[in-house]
Design a protein around this nucleic acid. Structure first.
Length: 926
RNA sequence: GGGCCUAUAGCUCAGUUGGCUAGAGCGCACGCCUGAUAAGCGUGAGGUCGGUAGUUCAAGUCUACCUAGGCCCA
């Protein structure tokens, strides 16, 4: 047959036709779709559509307005978008107002760096102005990044922690803590630079080598325990080691590990105690030998007193688990005012947080002879005094890593300063929090245990920072006696002023604007006050974010959902809970979901030093945001998630599969008008009904997964459905029907009716995940009554129970099983070069009664699902499946093989079916 | 050092209360098709379940320890 003729027969077929391209070119197409959404104001259109529906609130945790968005941001925002879109399609009014955390140290530090030495000459207001600009700049950058991901939300009106109304709410919530007496002032050690006379944050401290005196100091044991009764009359010394002799005056305790072994030993005629393991080290340093006398656990000395080597006061032996045995003596010099561990131990043992050093680094008047002396300079005098008192065992110099001020490069110290705290127990906050935690649904479930442990063990919340970029703590100090003033009346005024003018007003306005008339110092009675200089911890700020839920119309408190990374158990979940309990007497969230960390393909955290950072921008530019969205759906976000080259290519592969399947389906219904051509259920072909049955099963599974926020299940379910049920089975098998039967035939329209439904419903089902591609596919769907302008304006399709009952599933399972068996035989025949295309095959089936009946009563179905030209059926107890090449000829139109034995074909070269079709078409092959 | 989490084929995931030869899709190999074509179809090969030791008639599934990794603290 001529090529020309072949082409002509092909022209009589109904082949797929669509404008939906196979190549996605997402990086080009996505911006177009974004523009469409922008133009139609998709976010508000959806809310308008759901305006009378119940409200669902996912409250956004504010990212920090610093830097470009990273993969973790993308993961977080995409997951939130899944939920918001799902809820919309489930029939909720689900507004989503993104937020930003704009105050805080990282921005202030960046601005510091940019300003350099010019900062000295700037006012607080000027610095704050610079910080604000910095935050606004990155907010814009991040917003653009998030929108590019296809996240729907109120991007024009996000909430910001620097909004005046937001700042006002912070003050209002702070007031609640003041009212219930939780706000207290007490000492706490912080990094302190004597030269700059300022507190430093951890991030402002640089470690470099420093030469220090290293001394071993003897503390005389005052209380001899019973088990050392034999030595009651001896002087026994507990030996400590330190590299900061100037903290010896502040020593209040000696810490021993309760479980480690300690010994009493004799050395140079004196009796000492230190950790057993470290005695040889000590002996080595002193170049002497020793005699171990008795060994005991550290817990045996707990609570005993020693005598301070410089003062006539006690130093208590305590037990802590931060004691280590890799250096020193195992007996740790503890000055609660000068170290973090020391501080915690001090709290536990109710010691004074004693820090006899002023802001310039000079000893105060509680230190006797050292008063007024600069601490580092006093080192040698202290060492000399120890020596004079026979309390110095050994002295040397060592070089070690020591914290220095990043600005002036001088060594810093730990110094206890007065700070503001929220007491966790004064108003039963801890107890209430633990109780509220139980009422919240935590995904994954272990989250409840994790946050409970944290709340149970957390110390009081230090909420003051000696910084400029934040919301000032609304407190005043008496100019005469220094007493702090926390006045509800004043805070009321501040709340109002901040609401109108923002927190800059604290630095602009006269103090009289904030203070109530005639207020006096409770302690000294005077009327002179100054404004406090500290700002609030930013966690208090972000923890107040639920305030927007009260203010925004169409929102509600508490939120239905908070969703953040696992680090927020300590952060936002935690602070929000504490603030909400104090201000609203309940948890701010009903459900909390946490996601894991985004790691590289080997499961390692991404870092600059490892050079394994994957930026979402590069994926968006090269593959498209949709690929990132599908990746988020693919992985189990409740654990840490990985991303790398291979993973990405798997995502792309499965994206193509979904896209191509839709493309094919769109092609097959190009001549289908759903309103005119649809076939009613009772006339649908059985195989078409069967795939509708499968579709209902699919919906059941998908909806369940959406309900449980299990997107990876959706991904796998969809992927399997598209691959197994659609591509390799249904869509493969109905081609003959669609291509070869006359366009308007019932059997063809039956299949189109079903494909239309499959297409529409699968698009809707995946819309929350593949938001761009579903939109594109939706646009390419044939028009039908009520077709929305955007896929995202729709509700999810309903499960249609009628299709669940029409199908005899047991029968179909048998059919599919037998099909698999026969396909294996067909493959064998191919291997043996008997056939190529399956249509060349003629199947001989010898089957037992049951299967004979199954096939004979469904012979048309079998011919269709096997895509073969003929089936010969025989009854036999012994099952046998064999394949042979058809001995007929190939119909050039439909490619089925047929025996030209009727003689009735008007076009003898065609098979009888095609001959009739052509007749109907009035097609002239010549 | 502490709290919590993770570890099943190359990749992403399933594996109910411990119970037959550990499943899926993708990828891979081989083949078919050329009327979904930078597509489609079929067949097949891949894990002994991070390691060790236990409990049990029986463990991927329970216990202990170890290793690797993650978050948060210290």
């Amino acid at each position: 047959m001529s090529e020309e003729k072949k082409v002509k027969w092909k022209d009589t077929l109904n082949l797929p036709k669509t404008n939906f391209p196979m190549k996605a070119q997402l990086n080009r197409r996505e911006p177009e779709i974004l523009e469409k959404w922008e133009n139609m104001d998709i976010y508000r259109s959806i809310l308008e559509k759901r305006k009378d529906d119940p409200i669902y609130i996912l409250h956004d945790g504010p990212p920090y307005a610093n830097g470009n968005i990273h993969l973790g941001h993308a993961l977080n925002k995409i997951l939130k978008d899944f939920i918001v879109k799902t809820k919309s399609m489930e029939g909720f009014k689900a507004p989503y107002v993104p937020g930003w955390d704009c105050h805080g140290l990282p921005i202030e530090l960046k601005v510091d760096q940019e300003l350099g030495s010019s900062k000295k000459d700037m006012s607080v207001l000027d610095i704050r102005h610079k910080c604000r600009n910095y935050a606004e700049k990155f907010l814009k950058i991040q917003k653009k990044g998030f929108k590019r991901l296809g996240i729907f939300g109120d991007w024009e009106n996000p909430y910001k922690t620097i909004d005046p109304t937001y700042e006002s709410s912070i003050i209002k919530y702070f007031k609640s803590f003041v009212k219930n007496k939780s706000v207290i002032r007490k000492k706490r050690p912080v990094f302190w630079c004597n030269s700059c006379q300022t507190a430093l944050a951890e991030a402002e401290v640089e470690y470099s080598n420093h030469l220090s005196s290293s001394i071993y100091v003897k503390f005389l044991l005052k209380d001899i325990p019973d088990f050392l009764g034999k030595y009651k009359n001896k002087e026994i010394f507990v030996v400590i080691w330190t590299t900061t002799p100037w903290t010896i005056p502040a020593n209040l305790a000696i810490a021993l590990h309760p479980d480690y072994d300690y010994s009493l030993f004799e050395m140079k005629g004196e009796y000492y105690i230190c950790a057993t393991r470290l005695i040889p080290v000590l002996a080595d340093i002193l170049k002497t030998d020793y005699k171990k006398i008795i060994e005991f656990k550290g817990s045996k000395l707990n609570g005993l007193n020693t005598i301070h080597p410089l003062y006539n006061r006690n130093s208590l032996i305590i037990n802590t688990n931060y004691v280590e045995l890799d250096s020193g003596t195992g007996c740790v010099h503890t000055a609660p005012g000068h170290g973090e561990d020391d501080y915690r131990a001090g709290l536990e043992y109710n010691l004074d947080i004693y820090s006899p050093v002023d802001s310039k680094g000079h000893f105060d008047n509680t230190t006797g002879k050292y008063e007024g002396k600069e601490i580092f300079k006093a080192n040698s005098e202290i060492i000399q005094d120890l020596k004079n008192n026979n309390r110095l065992m050994y002295e040397t110099q060592i070089e070690h890593s020591y914290p220095h001020c990043w600005r002036c490069k001088k060594p810093v110290i730990f110094r206890a300063t007065e700070q503001w705290f929220i007491s966790i127990d004064t108003a039963d906050l801890r107890k209430k929090a633990l109780n509220e935690i139980k009422k919240v649904k935590w995904y994954p479930a272990w989250g409840e245990e994790r946050i409970s442990n944290m709340v149970e063990n957390r110390p009081d919340w230090c909420i003051s920072r000696q910084r400029d970029w934040g919301v000032p703590i609304p407190v005043f100090f008496c100019k005469d006696c220094g007493e702090a003033l926390l006045s509800i009346e004043a805070i009321d005024k501040i709340e109002k002023i901040f609401n109108d003018l923002g927190s800059d007003s604290w630095y602009k306005e006269e103090i009289s604007e904030f203070l109530p008339e005639g207020i006096t110092c409770k302690k000294c009675g005077c009327k002179n006050f100054e404004k406090g200089k500290d700002i609030l911890d930013v966690w208090f700020e972000s923890g107040s974010s639920f305030s927007i839920l009260e203010k925004l119309p169409g929102h509600k408190f508490p939120a239905d959902m908070y969703l953040e990374g696992g680090d927020q158990y300590r952060g936002w979940f935690h602070s929000s809970l504490l603030v909400a309990i104090t201000t609203k007497d309940q948890s701010p969230y009903k459900t909390v979901i946490t996601h894991g960390w985004a790691l590289d393909e080997h499961g390692k955290a991404m870092s600059k030093s490892l050079g394994n950072i994957i930026e979402p921008q590069s994926i968006i530019e090269e593959q498209g945001a949709e690929i990132l969205r599908l990746w988020v759906a693919m992985v189990n976000y409740k654990e840490d998630v990985r991303l790398g080259k291979e993973i990405l290519s798997r995502v792309i592969e499965s994206y193509r599969k979904i896209r191509n399947t839709w493309r094919f389906m769109l092609g097959t219904i190009s001549d289908f008008n759903p309103e005119k051509d649809s076939i009613p259920d009772e006339h649908l072909r059985e195989i078409d009904l069967f795939i509708l049955y499968k579709l209902q099963k699919l919906k059941q599974k998908i909806f369940e997964a959406y309900t449980n926020y299990e997107y990876h299940i959706i991904y796998h379910t969809i992927s399997n459905f598209f691959t197994i049920d659609l591509s390799s089975f249904y869509l493969h098998v109905i081609k003959d029907n669609l291509y070869c039967n006359s366009p308007n035939s019932k059997k063809r329209r039956s299949t189109q009716t079903v494909i239309f439904k499959l297409l529409k419903e699968t698009i809707l089902l995946i819309a929350p995940i593949l938001s761009f591609t579903t939109e594109e596919a939706w646009e390419n769907m044939p028009d039908f009554e009520g077709k929305e302008n955007s896929v995202h304006l729709n509700l999810f399709p309903k499960i249609e129970k009628k299709y669940l009952n029409i199908i005899d599933n047991d029968k179909w399972e048998k059919i599919i099983k037998l099909r698999d068996k026969i396909l294996k035989e067909i493959e064998n025949a191919r291997d043996a070069k008997i056939i190529g295309d399956s249509l060349e095959a003629e199947i001989n089936l010898d089957l037992n009664d049951e299967y004979y009946n199954l096939v004979s009563s469904n012979i048309k179905i079998f011919k269709e699902i096997l895509v073969v030209s003929k089936i010969n059926l025989k009854k036999s107890e012994k099952e046998k499946i064999s394949i042979r090449k058809s001995n007929g000829k190939k119909c050039p139109r439909c490619w089925n093989w047929f025996l030209d034995d009727t003689g009735e074909n008007k076009l003898p070269e065609l098979c009888p079916r095609c001959s009739l079709e052509i007749e109907e078409l009035n097609f002239d092959p010549e």
